[in-house]
């Protein structure tokens, strides 16, 4: 005697209380926080400048405008730099390379790192050990060091830097991915898929990955922040193919000798980099807080 359909649930229609928690909705929920909004605004602003900048610059970025280190005045809103070029025009032109390189490097590192981390967590055996030891080897270098070493040998080409940064991003992401995946691997719904004979790659990307997105998104924004910082630092240190390419990092180095009397040449790119990295940092923090809030309210049940 099967109870009539729905009879014993008819008592009270349970209202849908907590909003569903999923990956895309994690992003959407984090938008409710002020910090995420500010972060997105900052990043958006600077990306806009990087893309549109060159087209609205008052002068060409290598055009001679006035005497070197002239204070702000006609023709140069923020004065000129060490070669007499317009600070504003160089500023508008100087973000593209940093952003593009950081984006490519982080994305590449992210993909490789996620795959390695998830595979290591799911394998739970010798493969896990081998992969993680490999990651340890790469982690033995501070990020900037590997880029320097590579640049020392091959030369400071953009692709060298991108590969170096991507390579050093991989183990850091892999660690986080593995750490986030390990508790999920223990859960019964994974065992259920295994019992049904679902192919391994499907379990990895269909079951495991969606459940680790929270920590991964936070780490991805952290990595982006770092990548931007390291790439700008490398330019600052003098590693660029063309010394006169407009580049925020390089601008700071070139113009810091004049900090005492014409600071704008260095201060403007500093502001640009600072706002950009703060933006990515705030986004990451916003996502992290949203994820933590969700975990806490779920744990309370």
């Amino acid at each position: 005697m099967i109870p009539a359909a729905g009879a014993d649930m008819a008592a009270e229609a349970v209202p849908l209380d907590a909003p569903p928690v999923r990956a895309t909705s994690l992003l959407r929920r984090s938008l409710r926080l002020w910090r995420t909004r500010i972060g997105i605004a900052l990043v958006g602003l600077l990306v806009l400048i990087a893309i549109v900048g060159p087209f609205i610059a008052p002068h060409g970025s290598s055009a001679f405008v006035a005497a070197p280190f002239s204070p702000p005045g006609k023709g140069a809103v923020f004065g000129t730099d060490h070669l007499g070029q317009d600070v504003l025009s160089r500023l508008l032109d100087g973000g593209r390379s940093i952003l593009l390189m950081a984006l490519i490097a982080t994305a590449a590192g992210l993909i490789a790192g996620v795959v390695i981390g998830l595979v290591a967590a799911y394998a739970r055996n010798a493969l896990d050990d081998v992969l993680m030891r490999g990651m340890d080897v790469i982690m033995a270098f501070p990020q900037i060091m590997l880029a320097l070493v590579a640049a020392a040998v091959v030369g400071p080409h953009p692709w060298v830097i991108i590969v170096a940064i991507a390579l050093t991003t991989v183990p850091r992401i892999a660690r986080v991915a593995r750490g986030a995946a390990l508790p999920v691997v223990e859960r019964d719904f994974i065992a259920c898929s295994e019992a049904m004979g679902v192919p391994r790659w499907r379990i990895l990307f269909g079951d495991l990955l969606p459940n680790t997105l929270g920590p991964l998104m936070v780490e991805a924004s952290l990595r982006m922040t770092y990548s931007i910082g390291v790439i700008a630092a490398l330019a600052f240190l003098g590693l660029s193919t063309n010394p006169n390419d407009p580049n925020w990092g390089l601008m700071i180095q070139d113009n810091r000798t004049a900090l005492a009397f014409q600071p704008w040449g260095a201060v403007m790119p500093i502001i640009a980099i600072a706002l950009l990295t703060m933006g990515t940092g705030l986004i990451g923090d916003g996502i992290a807080r949203t994820a933590a809030g969700i975990d806490r309210s779920r744990g309370a049940e």
Binding site: V21, A23, E186, R187, D188, F189, C192, D207
Partner: peptide, 14 residues
């Protein structure tokens, strides 16, 4: 077919 003990772990939250 197998039914697990923990109702909170045996369904994919996503």
């Amino acid at each position: 077919q197998y039914i697990f003990q923990n109702p909170y772990g045996s369904l994919n939250p996503r």
